[in-house]
């Protein structure tokens, strides 16, 4: 049985091989190709089909004041997004809700005045909820909402390699002028199931 030690070739090429492998790993674009969620785009009124749930953004409104479980005055302006979630095959938590503007700034949903930041989706019927985002007026142009089951977190860790709906809200400066003209607080309905199965149903249970 041979008891030879490492040959000079091994001593030479092993560090080179390790170095090359390390270099290769650092070249893999992990932040984009690997970690990025699968974004499914949609528009207001459309149903976005994710692999775990269907989502429909049914209405988008802008207001300076909202009222539901207590009134709230916007620091900027409230973007109020009505949505219906219906799970595909099992009950699940929906925790991700953020608004991204044209400058790629992200904005979190607020729980003020009874607005929802998360919900539970179930199969067979839709769950209607209302998201509210208090944003600066210049965030309205090109604003999109990113809604998904994974929580946003600071680093988006909970949405990696998962499906996320991206819905263009179709807002602009005119939306802000309408909101400014109407000082009546916008009423925020409590979350409720929708009778008609599937997103887009009109009647509440």
């Amino acid at each position: 049985m041979s008891r030879r030690g490492f040959s000079w070739r091994t001593m030479l090429f092993a560090p080179i091989a390790i170095g090359a492998a390390t270099w290769f790993v650092t070249q893999v674009p992990q932040d984009t190709s690997v970690d990025r969620p699968f974004e499914i785009e949609g528009a207001v009124g459309e149903t976005v089909r994710l692999d775990y749930a269907d989502l429909a953004v049914t209405d988008v409104r802008v207001a300076q004041r909202i009222d539901g479980e207590g009134g709230a005055q916007a620091g900027g302006v409230f973007v109020v997004v009505d949505a219906v979630w219906e799970a595909a095959d099992r009950t699940l938590s929906i925790g991700g809700a953020e608004l991204v503007d044209a400058q790629e700034r992200t904005h979190a949903a607020t729980s003020r005045s009874g607005c929802a930041t998360a919900t539970t989706a179930v199969p067979a019927y839709g769950q209607r909820i209302t998201y509210c985002f208090d944003v600066v007026p210049d965030a309205l142009d090109g604003a999109q909402v990113r809604l998904g089951r994974g929580g946003d977190g600071e680093d988006g860790a909970f949405q990696r390699r998962d499906a996320v709906a991206v819905v263009d809200l179709g807002l602009d400066r005119a939306s802000l002028e309408e909101a400014s003209a109407d000082e009546t607080p916008l009423w925020i309905d409590a979350p409720a199931p929708v009778v008609e199965a599937g997103p887009g149903g009109e009647e509440n249970a």
Binding site: G70, H107, A108, R112, V135
Partner: peptide
Amino acid sequence: YNIADAGELDVINPGVTY
């Protein structure tokens, strides 16, 4: 508390002043 509406603040988005 947010003085404008006397409610408790949970999040402060970019550019917004309270």
